[in-house]
Design a protein around this nucleic acid. Structure first.
Length: 417
RNA sequence: CGGGACAUGGUGCAAUGGUAGCACGAGGCCUUUGGGAGGCUUUAAUCCCAGUUCAAGUCUGGGUGUCCCGACCA
């Protein structure tokens, strides 16, 4: 992608109302635009990052044998009355011209449970796991912290269906591991804790994935000895002690919740009367689990964790581009060489962000590059070409390396791996 | 849903009830090119609706919007 053709630009001017780190950096660098409180437009750079995250999640979900589907955002009122959730205030509600009521999908148990019921009759049909990546709508009383809490956000929601508790538990553990792989690939593994939480109305316990950030909005209690984290609700019931070792020496940390997994058990199969015929010929209730990740929130959280005073520092696997190629100076020689490198990379199926802008000063190009945060910067200039070289700098390192032009493609390919 | 703050060009600020001004940005032309360059020039604003007043950006009432704290959530 030629930066000169990128229709979005970085900006120095940011509204003082934009307070969170993630929205400040993402808007300044041109990844997102705010439409209204809690709703952001994905711009080309932001959408590229989103698609990388989406793909990681898709791969990991497919890896636990979940099948991807896509459900309507508009749901008929009746389904939500079946589960006694039509009364929920955070559901956006619509009416059509005939006066019929609809809910905008806030979560999708109401749609997915009767759907799967149509196809599952016997223990032989179980287990089933389906997921979707789709917009969710929530009438939040308080949107906040940029991408971390909006009224409309992309969510991956996975629903699993099982013949007994043992199978549900087994699958739950499998998804837990897949979640850790997702957060690892998104570069926030070290900061992300599995946290014991209350399951609310669904079950006694659920698990949250909480990511430590200085700017976080939740609090968790971590036992340094057992490496167990407990959320605020549970810790009160636990009388501020570790559930494993009973220690009172718990560390309080600020976090953002990037994922949540629940054992729904028969909460929804009861409501929809979803039974199956077991091996012994008896009719039994299907047991369910549900597992969510907010993609926009995850993206925002990565920025909260991975940045410095100059801008974003994208983890390799979700960077909008693997390489930021910068042509410094307008001499013919530099231009030609940079063009050639850009085209060679394209031929090798490596899409770099190429700063070919002719009207920007050196300082402006470097400042933009740091702000945008692509992990590797390659500079070609009069100076480097004297040595038949290019310059490499990693976004999270200070040192600058000069390398021979002939080794460029090899370097890039090795780096991308 | 409880509490608080704010609202003037794109952004940040100013204007005693009396001519809406400054800086930055953005656009154009010229010069410049190893860490947000310089000159000339152009551009653009009082959130909405009432009220008070000879006169409202400023005062009063109501709305709307945005942000922050709490509660709740991906």
């Amino acid at each position: 992608m030629r930066q000169s053709k990128l229709f979005t630009k970085t900006t120095k001017n940011l509204s003082k109302d934009e307070k969170s780190v993630n929205s400040r950096l993402l808007i300044k660098a041109g990844f997102f635009d705010k439409l209204m409180a809690g709703a952001y437009s994905y711009l080309p750079l932001g959408f590229l990052v989103f698609k990388k995250i989406e793909n990681i999640i898709r791969e990991e979900m497919n890896g636990v044998s979940a099948q991807e589907i896509l459900l309507p955002s508009m749901n008929p009122r009746k389904l939500w009355e079946t589960t006694n959730r039509w009364r929920y205030k955070e559901i956006f509600k619509l009416k059509n011209r005939k006066g019929q009521d609809f809910a905008l999908g806030w979560t999708h148990e109401e749609v997915v449970t009767p759907l799967v019921k149509k196809h599952v009759h016997s223990y032989k049909d179980l287990p089933v796991a389906v997921y979707q990546i789709q917009n969710k709508f929530r009438d939040e009383l308080r949107t906040k912290s940029g991408l971390l809490r909006g009224v409309e956000f992309m969510m991956k929601d996975l629903y699993s269906f099982h013949k007994d508790e043992k199978d549900l538990n087994k699958y739950y553990e499998k998804v837990k591991k897949a979640y850790f792989r997702i957060f690892k690939r998104c570069g926030i593994e070290k900061e992300t804790f599995l946290t014991l939480a209350s399951g609310g109305t669904f079950s006694k316990y659920s698990h949250e994935f909480q990511t430590l950030t200085f700017y976080g909005e939740d609090l968790i209690y971590v036992c340094p000895k057992c490496k167990i984290a407990i959320n605020k609700e549970i810790i009160e019931k636990q009388k501020y002690r570790c559930p494993e070792c009973n220690s009172k020496k718990l560390e309080i940390k600020k976090t953002v919740e990037v994922g949540n997994i629940f054992k729904l058990k028969d909460r929804f199969s009861q409501a929809f009367d979803f039974n199956f015929r077991d091996k012994d010929g008896k009719e039994k209730k299907v047991l369910m689990g549900c597992y969510g990740i907010g993609l926009g929130r995850l993206l925002g959280t990565v920025v909260e964790v991975c940045h410095d005073d100059k801008g974003i520092i994208w983890p390799k696997e979700i960077s909008p581009f693997p390489i930021h190629l910068i042509a410094l100076g307008e001499t013919k020689k530099v231009k030609e060489k940079a063009e050639k490198i850009y085209k060679d990379l394209q031929k090798a199926k490596i899409e770099a962000l190429y700063d070919d802008r002719e009207d920007k000063s050196i300082g402006a190009k470097f400042t933009d590059s740091d702000l945008i945060g692509i992990p590797v910067r390659i500079v070609v200039s009069e100076k480097t070409l004297k040595n038949n070289s290019f310059e490499v700098k990693k976004r999270n390192e200070k040192k600058i390396k000069l390398m021979k032009l002939t080794s460029l493609e090899k370097y890039v390919k090795k780096y991308i791996k």
